[in-house]
């Protein structure tokens, strides 16, 4: 009914957070990591990693919003959400769907993103260890 609003809200928060972190990172300069052999590698900034989450959340909720338009659950005129004009029962059902499916959607995207963070961190570590061999 309006489950896409939950990941969309998270996307707004994540976008603002990305802007703030980006500014801080610019001030701090480029972060590098040094291996035991003295090799320096540029680290992928966290703001860029947060961008992955942003793109997944924005892209997913945009395509989901389209699906809701397709099914007539979202309309281009007030009150925009069909359920909002159908009485308190429909509103309650809509809120329930947002609290269950919507929250789960936002959570699964976030969990996958956290998984990607962990994988990228281990890849960075591995690449750093492999550097002397490349030399």
């Amino acid at each position: 009914m309006a489950c896409f609003l939950v990941p969309m809200t998270e996307a707004i928060v994540a976008t603002v957070a990305k802007k703030v972190i980006e500014k801080k990172e610019k001030k701090a300069g480029v972060q590098t990591v040094t291996s035991a052999d003295g090799f320096k590698m540029e680290k992928t900034p966290f703001s860029q990693k947060l961008g992955w989450l942003n793109k997944m959340l924005w892209g997913g909720s945009a395509l989901l919003a389209f699906e809701h338009v397709w099914h007539g659950e979202v309309v281009p005129y007030f009150p925009f959400l069909t359920a909002a004009g159908e009485g308190p029962e429909a509103v309650s059902e809509m809120l329930h769907e947002m609290a269950t499916a919507g929250v789960c959607m936002a959570a699964i995207v976030t969990v996958v993103w956290i998984g990607m963070l962990l994988v990228s961190k281990s890849l960075e570590k591995r690449a750093l260890k492999a550097l002397p061999a490349v030399k």
Binding site: C3, F4, P7, W52, K55, M56, L57, W58, G59, G60, S61, A62, L63, L64, A101, C104, M105, I108, V109, V112
Partner: peptide
Amino acid sequence: CWMFWGASLMWLID
């Protein structure tokens, strides 16, 4: 890629 994967995850929950 991000757009499709994001939507896929959301539809998976659906």
